[in-house]
Write a protein that binds this DNA or RNA. Structure first.
Lengths: 206, 206
DNA sequence: GTCTATATAAGGATAGAC
DNA sequence: GTCTATCCTTATATAGAC
């Protein structure tokens, strides 16, 4: 058995993810962040160059993973002869929740992603679009097959509605709070199943 | 004809709304804000006491109006013998877009509202919950009548999904961008109608 | 009510010793 | 790679003249 201590870099990424999710990017100072990570204030600039670049790297660590899982799940669904709309949507929705319950940080990353949409940080939006836009386009194509009667614009509109629901629900912004007798993992699973049903109904209405 | 110049207070509220929508609360400084409003830096504290209180007042100005319109529209729908789920949902969704296209600031307020959800500012959330929570509860009751087979929890879940879609769509976070040949008002109207159809389908699925 | 000037704190970033 | 010390900028807030 090998015990590997987290490196300074990883501790910084973890602390950043947690604080960005909770207080936002602008409101989180490098001082808070390095205190929580128990590293020196100068470490951020040494390892990441700047705060902006640290933000990008926090996203990259999880989004590379998320995109890979989504694409694999999509390909798996498409390889089956009895592929369905629900399976394609599940390939998009489920990996997001898997990631959110696998890591100790819990749903911090998903909440952080939700904030990224709200913050109109153009540099960040560009980074996300450049690196992960192709995944979204791939899913749009896969979904179009099941709703051929929808105009392209109409489809995009509904996908935006679904993206909004997913973001909002996963980030725990709404009224629904996890009940005390349900753990976080089960809560996420439940949310995903309910969202899936809701999304299929919304997409297939004429 | 009387021309009334905007007061310092109103100019501050307008500038704040615009900048908060664009850059967020934390990232907007009082200096930016007073420069845009063309008033002195000290005016914020003279008129509002603090930045936090200015934030509250920006919300209050529009939310009082929004809540009143929603409640009136709801009562009007309920007074008709042929009330429908779609009409109740419309009473919730349409006033939000009306406000967003009436004022010169355009959709700034709605975008600002979307940010408020993302920013986990507890003071602000408390303020919103205290002052406007009753409107949401009233709508939940009115909607429950049309979907009596849904458990209360299930209903709340779906309302959260709808709230997410509304927020995301109105705040223009998604892929759908207004086409150059469509003006902002028509774009909002179109979005509301599409969202309405989507929401009804999602709510009524078994 | 509005201004200038300033108090006071906090922010990101870096230089240079170890 | 890590530390201390510090630079420089920006922030909110206020005191006091007009």
């Amino acid at each position: 058995m090998t015990i590997v201590a987290f490196s300074t870099k990883d501790r910084l990424l973890n602390s950043a993810e947690q604080l960005f999710a909770e207080h936002g990017f602008a409101s989180t100072s490098l001082r808070q962040l390095t205190t929580l990570a128990d590293v020196n204030i100068a470490a951020v600039n040494y390892h990441f160059g700047s705060k902006d670049n640290l933000i990008n790297e926090v996203f990259r660590r999880r989004l590379d993973d998320l995109s890979e899982r989504r694409m694999k799940a999509l390909q798996q669904a498409q390889s089956l002869p009895e592929n369905t709309l629900e399976k394609v949507l599940a390939a998009f929705i489920r990996p997001a929740l898997e990631i959110s319950i696998e890591h100790e940080g819990g749903s911090a990353f998903v909440r952080m992603l939700a904030r990224a949409y709200a913050e109109k940080n153009e540099r960040l939006r560009q980074f996300l679009s450049d690196n992960y836009g192709h995944v979204l386009r791939e899913f749009a194509r896969a979904i179009q097959i099941f709703v051929p009667q929808l105009e392209r614009q109409e489809l995009y509109w509904r996908l935006d509605f679904i993206a909004g629901s997913l973001t909002y629900a996963m980030a725990d912004f709404g009224l629904i709070r996890r009940q005390t007798n349900v753990n976080e993992q089960d809560h996420c699973r439940l949310t995903a199943e309910k969202l899936l049903r809701f999304a299929v109904a919304g997409l297939t209405t004429p």
